[in-house]
Design a protein around this nucleic acid. Sequence first.
DNA 1: TGTACATCAGTGAACGCGCGTTCACTGATGTAC
DNA 2: TGTACATCAGTGAACGCGCGTTCACTGATGTAC
Lengths: 227, 227
Amino acid sequence: MTDEIKAVARRHLETEGANLSLRAVARDMGMVSSALYRYFASRDELLTALILDAYNALADVVAAADEAVTDRSRLRARWLAAAHAIRDWALARPAEYALLYGSPVPGYVAPEDTVAAASRIYIVLARILADGFAAGALPAPEQDRPAALMFGPSLRLADALRADLTRTTSDIAPGLPEQLLFAGLTAWIQLFGHVSLELFGQFNNVVEARDEFFDLQLELTADLMGL
Amino acid sequence: MTDEIKAVARRHLETEGANLSLRAVARDMGMVSSALYRYFASRDELLTALILDAYNALADVVAAADEAVTDRSRLRARWLAAAHAIRDWALARPAEYALLYGSPVPGYVAPEDTVAAASRIYIVLARILADGFAAGALPAPEQDRPAALMFGPSLRLADALRADLTRTTSDIAPGLPEQLLFAGLTAWIQLFGHVSLELFGQFNNVVEARDEFFDLQLELTADLMGL
DNA sequence: TGTACATCAGTGAACGCGCGTTCACTGATGTAC
DNA sequence: TGTACATCAGTGAACGCGCGTTCACTGATGTAC
């Protein structure tokens, strides 16, 4: 029953954005609005449930795409599969993607429990790098490989940033060198930046062949990480 | 007078997001809500005016930052200056940035005239590449330079994408080779992706040393374009 | 097999609020003669 | 210098709507004896 409410609410997100209306949801279900309070204590709680579900659905989809690459040493294939899964999911459920990664909903503050769900996807992505590092398949920062680009003498990490990377590494991918995490964050920005710009309409009148464009961008990010 | 209304409305955007309320704006100005209709025909028209102003303000700031580099051949400095101007502006006016580049406002459709304003900033950015190309200061796609990364044999541009690039080039930076535009688009995604993710809270608990992080990302994008 | 009772999903009315937009109006200011 | 008129910024009431949340309630279903 709460599942049905959430399904209807998700449908409303598509047209109304995050201005989710309890009454409208109830109306769509042929119920009276107060009936929803048997299942959710407030509008914000319903919104939180939707956000949690979305984070988890996305993480599931990405983990499945990664795990579908049975030869775990094919790091590049794993990255491409995971990234495609993210974009496909986002294109299929734009409103839910916007809920997670779009402009913050005014007046809504995400409760603590969303943090863990939000980081699941990052753990999946970081594992690709961590596996590669453990297998010795990623280039060391010094080597003359594409990924080495960013670790030239002029690109020393400041102490504060190094501390961030160390902390995030221990949260998400214990043992991963900070330079690899940095490369991963760069790819992350490129990936989510791409999907967000595309979804939020910034590609209109600029790039229409979006699948091809995305594929090329992905190859770049894979090079950047040395996959 | 319309300026004062817009100023108050901008203040409201900060707290309410795009759920801008005419009545609230009027209240803040000590007026009755219907008085606003002497200046704006509807709520959407006010929103459009705010969006236009924001696009123009951002483009102005970026153009000024670029032009402050008096030696026009210092392409890398010009790119860094422009990019910093974008981020600084976004951090100073997060709500207006979100209005332009965040999730679309449900039910609001931008009228035609916003398109020209929206592309001004791209013209400024593309001019950096165009100047560099005209001066012969940018590496040819074949050269063994960082920017050449993305034009290896495995990264052929599909016809549809090539057509997009040609069209966009003629809109924004006539004469610019499509490979350079592609590099520019990649940098654009990295830049706006970074600013959006940062502003929309995705860096929380991940990267706190954001200025340093941004600087490093920018160096990367500059390398990528061969500046 | 039948009665008494508890559970609990959903109802309907109400509270108090906010919204965009319209419309006839007031009343001050400026202009023309 | 003084009167008549036009302009026009802002008013106030109203329309019709939607919202989240509360509360006492109905009435069907299941359980206990």
